[in-house]
Every structure is written in structure tokens, then in C-alpha cells.
Amino acid sequence: MTDEKNPNGGGEATRRDFIHIAAGSMAAIGGAAVLWPFIDQMNPAADTLALGTTDIALGELTEGQEITVMFRSMPHFVRMRSPGEVEAARETAVSSLPDRLARNRNLDESAPATDENRSAMTAAVSEGVEIEDALRQALLVTSASCTHLGCVPTEGAGDYGAWFCPCHGSHYDTSGRIRRGPAPENLPIPPMTFISATTLRLG
């Protein structure tokens, strides 16, 4: 038969091709739209997102003591720093730091990395709760995941007397700030609230 030519060919193509192009494009749009649910299903589910808080009892924490707690499936350091450690952290000039931002979820993103901005002074306080400034200044809560590749730094090691990451040699100071090594950022600080005089809630 002579009528078996490619129907897309021929001189008068443009008008006739339109319908094929329209059908093809519409199918392609649909295919693209279907992708989204299949990608989004791998994002954290509603129950995972909702499991957002961890309460820390501060009553048992003595000066110089450090505990590690889990918050949103990640380890976090809770450290009741000694006055000497706080002093050392305060004396460090922000301009000398590799990362000059506080990285504190309780503050603005552009807040500078002073020790005041890193400590629990920045935590919110629930209505009617009274808590001493000295305790808030001494308390440091940071993520325990090295900002380089996620290992948990070792306590009390490194050149700055606080944390040293055994994986690739990052040194953090007593304010959880990166001082030397491959890690790009200070240890991030989670959102926190004092819900009683002895309980700090993360999240």
C-alpha cells in the first residue's frame, strides 16, 4: 500500500503535527507530576517529624560534668562547664574563629559566635520559671555530630580542652566552636526551652 508513509512526514506537517505534540507533551507533564509522590515519600513522615522533643533533667548535672542525650535521633552534648572553661571561651575573639556565626537555632542566622550566643543564655524560659543566669551561662548544649562528616567527637581531648574528632582531627573549644581541622562550621545548637528550674527541653 502506498499509504503507509510516516504520518508525521510530508509538507503540510505543522498543523497535523500539533495534535501529536500536544498529546506527547501532556503525557510527559503527567509523567513528571507522578514523580513527586514517589520522591516525597522518602522525606521524613509525619510521625517522624512530630517526635520532636527531648527533656533533660539538669538537677543531676554537676560542674564539669557532661552527658550525651539523643535528640531527633542525633546525639547531643549537654555540658555544665566550669568557670574556667567559660572564661576561656569568652576570651576568644570572634574574629579569630574559622566560623564566626553562632549556628544557634534559638537566634538569628547572622548572630556572631560569641560564647554568650552559644550558651544556654539563648534558651527560651517558660512562663513562671526562674533560673539563675550563672547556670544558663555555664550550660552548653550542642550537637555531637562533627560538622565535617558526622562522627561524634571525643570529650576532653584536642588542643582546646573540649572536643576532638577522632575521624579527621577537628578541634572544638569549650564553646563547641571549630578551631582547627577540616570541619567547616561550629557544632550547631538545637532549639531549647527551660520548662522548669531543673528541666531543659530540646525541640
Partner: peptide, 18 residues
Amino acid sequence: GLAILLYLSYRQVWSRVK
């Protein structure tokens, strides 16, 4: 919508053969 477009496309393609 897609069914209608495909049907028109189908008619167009097959219009040249018996």
C-alpha cells in the same frame, strides 16, 4: 484530557490507512 488528545492523535495517524 490526555485520552481525548491521544484519541485525536490516533485518528490522525490512522487516517491514512484503511
